[in-house]
Design a protein around this nucleic acid. Structure first.
Length: 467
RNA sequence: GGGCCGUUAGCUCAGUUGGUCAGAGCAGGGGACUUUUAAUCCCAAGGUCCUGGGUUCGAAUCCCAGACGGCCCA
């Protein structure tokens, strides 16, 4: 017997086979035969009769194996199979005297022998380390975990459908970049042997997607992995999935409306509604979301008006007065971000859009005409996490050049997350980029919200672990 | 970065004051059983108690260091 045969023909999902037996009375047998296959998850031996449960993605089904129908070799195969083996069964659909729709096995095939045992059927797999490192065991042991990742796929499909329906085109831009940019983060560095030079794994797709806008693609999006060389936490994985969209002739308020609709549609496709459970309460994603100016929200949460403390040392002192952590080497934008993350972000459970950020925090956003210290930018928060970031994109190449210079000053002042200037991108801007509304949406965090999971590791199949 | 907790059989877990304390259930092995539903019954087997030091007559247990993981805080 080959324990790993190449094929098993004619298979149907067990849910389909079960449906064929729904109308049967106990003791009845349907006409014809079906072929089903799946992992052996339980077996109840009775000597010359064996009951076995097999499971595929569609569900679970009982196999009724008797010496009369199978003969000694076939019965031995199923009687001696291990839990975890993948077997194929052909036979009539019946309803047993106890009322269970089953396949009365006429033949049994070993399709894949398992050499290692599956997790305990009743206790499941609880050790979080094994769950993450050997996710296949977690999936094998838990229908709920399998469903978790189906929900993730549905949410992403919902986002894609939403954007495709609105005329966006999906594009792919380089993950290996000669210079990184588009976010404040430290990159991973890798090396190209033939070119003899270091390359960076992207920390964002922003600067390449904007090049697409310069070229006239007008409405583009990319869903893909970004890589940030930072610590891991309940909401950080070094590689994570990001959506970025750019729409010509839109501004950040247009983008805010699109975000609300997109997220609520994804929620409906993934979970069936706009209201999702969250940490014992619920989050209502129904548009419109609350909007508040960032500086007002910061003042309400911390008592600090950041625009009244434009000097880093001054702001640092004020923060410490208020009991907030303010590192000595942090430049002004980092300090403002510190107030946001410490005092404000955890309070933003219901969806909230914070509008109008200080220019220093936002090197790619267009200034507000009415207040040159602020830019047309929002971030959306939900469940105490940032989930999205959007601007009216800066398309003035001279202003952009100045912003890069500011970043270099931050870098010199000790901010190792400040990104280098990208001359090639500036050349692209000099060719003219239309006024554009851009958006970044953290897909992993969105999935956390939609599935009431409080660790990013629960929504990433194979999260980063120490080796 | 800090604090707390955890790591014992393939899985889920017990293990008292430092002394018959190497244990159970399930899985796996042998046997009985032709309608079971976590089937049942009998038998046997299964260990780097995370790693390395230390204290002690004696350590899964106490101390120190480390690894990995979880939670909380910053």
């Amino acid at each position: 017997m080959d324990p790993y045969p190449a094929r098993f023909t004619g298979r149907i999902p067990v849910a389909t086979a079960r449906a064929a037996g729904e109308g049967l009375e106990p003791g009845d047998e349907a006409d014809g035969q079906v072929a089903v296959a799946g992992r052996l998850v339980a077996r109840r031996g009775q000597g010359k009769t064996v009951f076995a449960d097999i499971e595929d993605r569609s569900g679970r089904m009982q196999v009724w194996a008797t010496l009369d129908r199978l003969g000694p070799d076939g019965l031995a195969l199923i009687a001696e199979a291990h839990l975890g083996d993948i077997i194929g069964v052909r036979g009539a659909v019946v309803r047993t005297r106890r009322g269970e729709v089953s396949v009365a096995a006429a033949s049994v095939d070993m399709l894949a022998k398992a050499l290692r045992p599956p997790p305990d059927r009743h206790a499941g797999l609880r050790d979080p380390e094994t769950r993450y490192r050997q996710r296949y065991l977690d999936l094998m042991a838990s229908e709920e975990v399998r469903e978790q990742f189906v929900t993730r796929a549905r949410a992403i499909a919902g986002v894609r459908r939403f954007l495709d329906d609105r005329g966006f085109i999906e594009v792919e831009t380089p993950a290996l970049q000669p210079i990184y940019g588009g976010a404040a983060a430290r990159p991973f560095v890798t090396h190209h042997n033939e070119l003899g030079r270091d390359l960076y794994l992207r920390i964002a797709t922003e600067l390449y997607l904007k090049r697409c806008l310069v070229g006239g693609l007008d409405k583009v999006y990319e869903i893909g992995k970004d890589f940030r060389n930072e610590g891991v936490s309940f909401k950080h994985n070094p590689e994570f999935t990001m959506l970025e969209t750019y729409e010509a002739y839109a501004d950040y308020e247009d983008v805010a409306r699109m975000l609300e609709e997109m997220v609520s549609q994804a929620a409906r496709e993934a979970t069936g509604g706009f209201v999702v459970p969250w940490k014992g309460g619920e989050i209502d994603l129904t548009p419109p979301w609350r909007r508040v100016r960032l500086v007002d929200a910061l003042r309400e949460a911390s008592g600090i008006d950041v625009l009244e403390h434009p000097d880093a040392a001054d702001l640092r002192a004020r923060m410490r007065e208020a009991g907030l952590d303010a590192p000595d080497d942090a430049p002004w934008p980092k300090l403002v971000d510190g107030i946001l993350s410490q005092a404000l972000e955890p309070t933003l459970v219901q969806p909230t859009i914070l509008m109008d950020y200080p220019l220093e925090l936002s090197p790619f956003a267009k200034r507000r005409a009415d207040d040159r210290r602020l830019v047309e930018r929002f971030e959306a928060f939900c469940g105490g996490m940032e989930i999205a970031n959007a601007f009216s994109e800066l398309n003035d190449p001279d202003d952009q050049r100045e912003r890069f210079a500011m970043l270099q000053a931050d870098r010199a002042a000790g901010d190792d997350e400040a990104q280098p200037a990208d001359e090639d991108f500036l050349v692209a801007l000099e060719h003219g980029m239309p006024p554009t509304g851009g958006l970044g949406l953290g897909i992993d965090r969105l999935v956390m919200l939609l599935t009431d999971r409080h660790s990013i590791r629960e929504v990433i199949l194979f999260p980063a672990m120490r080796t």
